[in-house]
C-alpha cells in the first residue's frame, strides 16, 4: 500500500471515531472525555480475536461493535439521569480504568507491549466504503424522530423533558450508538495498523476529537467531516512542526470558540446545498407552467 493510501486509510478510520463524537456532542450535547477508551475496547476485542481465533473478519467486527455498545451501556447507565458533567467525568475515569486494566492483565492483553501480528485486512476502498455507509446512516439518523429528539435534548434538556421526551433513555441510546461507532473504528484500526497498545487511547485523543468537532461546527455533519479530515491530514503535511501541533491546534480552537462559536460550518450541511440547487431546477418549470397552489 502506497504512502498516500495508507495515510488516507488511517485518516478515514479516525474520521469514523470523530463521527461518533458528532453523535454525542453535535446531536445530543453529551460530553465524553474518554471516548477513545471505546476505541480501545473495539481494537482490543478485534486484536485478541484475530490473533487467537480464526473467525472471519465480519464476525470479529460485529463482536467488537457489540462489546463497544455493551461497555457504553454499562458506563452510561448510572450517569444519564444526572447533569452532563457527570458523563464527562465518568467517561474520563472509564478511560483511565481501561488503560490500567490492559496494562495490568498482561497475560491476556500483552500489557504495555500491546498485541502484535494482527493480519492487515484494511485497504483504502474498504475504509472509504464503511465511512460512506456510516455517513449515509447518520444523515438519515439526524432527520429521524430519534435524531430530532436528540437535538431537542441538546438545545434544552428541561424543555425536551417537558415535551414528553424520555431524556435519560434517548441519552443512553445515543451514548450506546456512539460507543458502537467508536468501537467499529477501533476494530478497523487494529486491522489497519496490525499493532495495538493501550497508551494510544488516553484522554488527550478524546479531547482532540472534541476540538475537531467544534472547529467544524458542532451542529453540522459536513463541518465535522471537513475539520476531521483537515486535522488528520495536516500533521502529515506539516511534519516539521509536529512538536508544536497541540499548541497550534489549541490556538485554532480557542480562536474559533471565541470568534466563531458556531464553528466553520454552523448548521449548514452539504445536503442542504444539494437540495437547494435541486430545488432551483425543479421550481422553474413549475412556475413556468403556472401551477395553482
Amino acid at each position: 500500500m502506497g504512502y498516500y493510501a495508507s495515510v488516507l486509510t488511517t485518516a478515514t478510520i479516525n474520521l469514523m471515531a470523530i463521527l461518533s463524537m458528532y453523535v454525542l456532542m453535535g446531536l445530543t450535547g453529551i460530553f465524553s472525555m474518554g471516548q477513545a477508551a471505546f476505541m480501545c475496547v473495539g481494537a482490543y476485542t478485534a486484536g485478541m480475536l484475530a490473533v487467537r481465533t480464526s473467525l472471519p473478519m465480519v464476525v470479529v467486527v460485529v463482536i467488537s461493535v457489540g462489546m463497544g455498545m455493551l461497555s457504553a451501556f454499562l458506563v452510561g447507565l448510572p450517569v444519564v439521569k444526572l447533569r452532563r458533567d457527570y458523563i464527562a467525568l465518568i467517561t474520563l475515569g472509564f478511560g483511565e480504568a481501561i488503560v490500567a486494566l490492559l496494562n495490568n492483565l498482561s497475560n491476556v492483553t500483552g500489557g504495555a507491549n500491546g498485541i502484535n501480528g494482527i493480519p492487515r485486512k484494511m485497504n483504502i476502498y474498504l475504509a472509504l466504503g464503511v465511512l460512506a455507509v456510516l455517513i449515509f446512516l447518520l444523515l438519515n439518523f439526524k432527520n429521524s424522530k430519534f435524531g430530532r429528539h436528540c437535538i431537542a435534548i441538546k438545545n434544552d434538556e428541561l424543555s425536551a423533558a417537558a415535551m414528553g421526551i424520555n431524556v435519560p433513555r434517548i441519552k443512553l441510546l445515543a451514548f450506546v450508538l456512539a460507543g458502537g461507532i467508536t468501537a467499529l473504528s477501533g476494530c478497523l484500526m487494529a486491522y489497519n495498523t496490525t499493532f495495538i497498545e493501550p497508551m494510544a487511547y488516553g484522554s488527550v485523543k478524546s479531547i482532540d476529537w472534541i476540538c475537531f468537532v467544534f472547529v467544524g461546527g458542532v451542529s453540522s455533519l459536513t463541518g465535522t467531516l471537513v475539520s476531521g479530515l483537515i486535522f488528520n491530514l495536516l500533521p502529515e503535511v506539516l511534519r516539521v512542526f509536529s512538536l508544536y501541533r497541540i499548541i497550534v491546534q489549541g490556538a485554532i480552537v480557542l480562536l474559533i470558540i471565541n470568534f466563531m462559536p458556531q464553528g466553520l460550518f454552523g448548521e449548514y450541511e452539504l445536503s442542504d446545498l444539494v437540495k437547494k440547487v435541486a430545488g432551483l431546477f425543479k421550481k422553474k418549470p413549475a412556475v413556468a407552467g403556472g401551477d395553482k397552489q
Partner: peptide, 11 residues
Amino acid sequence: YFVSSATLGIV
C-alpha cells in the same frame, strides 16, 4: 466553556 477549558489544559 468545556471545550475551552479542555483545550487550555492540554496546551
